[in-house]
Design a protein around this nucleic acid. Structure first.
Lengths: 190, 190
DNA sequence: TAACGTAAATTCACTGGTGAGTATACTTTC
DNA sequence: GAAAGTATACTCACCAGTGAATTTACGTTA
C-alpha cells in the first residue's frame, strides 16, 4: 500500500540517523534500518541506491541542524572569546547526556578513512568546512589578523574536545578547550 | 606443523595492525587477518579468544611505539612551546605519507563508541592517558601554573589536529594546532 | 460519473556470499 | 607419549542486494 514517497524516505533517514549515530555504520544492517522504519528491505532499495548511498544521505541530513545548534550554543552576545566559552560550556553539558556519542561526521570519517571518494567522506568534509566558515566569519567580524588560522585552530579545538570527551567520557576536556580558545583569541596571539 | 607459538601470535597481531589500521575494525574479517598472517582460522582462535580480544591486543601493541614516536618528534631541546611546534611539524609531515590514516585509537573509539566495556575502549583510554601524562610532565618541568589544564588542552590540540587532517586530508591543520599550542604556552595564559 | 490505464510505491520470498566461531583429527617437539 | 600448535572442513546466522507480483493514487476517457 503506497504511502507518500517522501514521507517514507524521511522515515528511513530518521531510522538510519538513530541507528548509525548510536551504533556506527558497519555495525548497523540495512535490515535493521528497514525494520526500524517500518518498511521492507525492497522498499528501502526503492528509495536508496545502496547502503553507502543512505550513509551519505544520513550525514547530509545532519549537516544543517548541527551547524544551527552550534550557532545557538555560541549565541551572539559578547566577544568571540565569550561566545566560544559559552559554546564549549554547552558542548560539555550536551556531552553528558546519555545518548551523546561524539560527532557523527568524525566517526563516519574514522570508520571509512580508507574509502576515498565515499559519499560520506564528502559529506563530512563539507560539513566541517561549513563549521569553519561560520567560525571564520565570527572571527573576521571582530577584526583579528590571521583570521583563517584562528578559525582553523578553533575547529581543531572543537573536534579535539569532542574526541577526548568521547574517549574518556569526561566533559572536562570541553572546559580545557574553552580556556585554550580564550587564550588564542586574547590580544591577537599567533 | 607447530612453529613457535609466540612468533605466530605476533605475526597475527602484525597482520591485524596493518589491516585494522588501514581499513577499520568492522571492515576486516578474521579470515582476512588469518590469511595475511599465513595461518588458518583455527590457529587464530587457538591464540585469541575472539575477534574483540584481538582488537584489544592490536591497540595494546600500538600503545608504546606510538608514545615513543611522539617523544622523538617533540625532541628534548628548547622550551615546551618549541617542542610542541616541532611535534606538530612532524605530525604534518607524517600525515602526508600515503599510509597515514589518522589515529588508530581514535578511530577504534569512534567505531566502538557504544560498546561500553569493550577492551578496545579501555586500551584507547589508557593510551590517551599515557600521552597526556607525558605532556603533563613536560609542562610541569617548565613550571607552569595550571599544568593539568594545559596538558589537557595540548591533548585536545593533538587529537583535534589529527581529526581535521584526516577529514580534509590537509596537513595545514597541524600548523594551526602548533600555533595554538604556542599561544597557550606563552606567558602562562589560562 | 464510472470504468480504465498507468506509474509510483510497496510486499514476500529469495540468492549468493561472507561473517564469526567450532568439531575432529593430525603433526611436531620434548 | 603427552602437550602445544596447526589443518581441513564444517555450521549456522546474517548481510547486501534482487525478481516477480501486488496494491494504491490519480488523471484520462467514454
Amino acid at each position: 500500500m503506497p504511502r507518500d514517497g517522501l514521507l517514507t524516505r524521511n522515515q528511513i533517514v530518521a531510522a538510519a540517523d538513530e541507528l548509525f549515530y548510536s551504533q556506527g555504520l558497519h555495525a548497523v544492517s540495512v535490515d535493521a534500518i528497514a525494520e526500524k522504519a517500518g518498511v521492507t528491505k525492497k522498499t528501502f532499495y526503492y528509495h536508496f541506491k545502496s547502503k553507502d548511498d543512505l550513509i551519505g544521505c544520513y550525514l547530509d541530513a545532519r549537516d544543517r541542524p548541527t551547524v544551527d545548534r552550534f550557532k545557538v550554543w555560541a549565541g551572539s552576545e559578547g566577544s568571540v572569546a565569550d561566545r566560544m566559552t559559552r559554546f564549549f560550556s554547552k558542548l560539555g553539558r550536551s556531552s553528558r547526556g546519555p545518548r551523546w556519542n561524539g560527532c557523527g561526521f568524525l566517526r563516519a570519517a574514522a570508520e571509512l578513512a580508507n574509502m576515498r571518494g565515499h559519499p560520506a567522506l564528502t559529506a563530512a568534509r563539507t560539513h566541517k568546512a561549513r563549521c569553519e566558515q561560520w567560525l571564520l566569519e565570527m572571527v573576521n567580524e571582530e577584526g583579528h589578523s590571521n583570521a583563517e588560522t584562528i578559525a582553523r585552530a578553533l575547529m581543531v579545538l572543537i573536534d579535539g574536545a569532542v574526541s577526548q570527551i568521547l574517549i574518556h567520557r569526561d566533559s572536562k576536556y570541553a572546559t580545557s578547550a574553552g580556556l585554550a580558545a580564550r587564550s588564542l583569541l586574547s590580544r591577537d596571539q599567533l
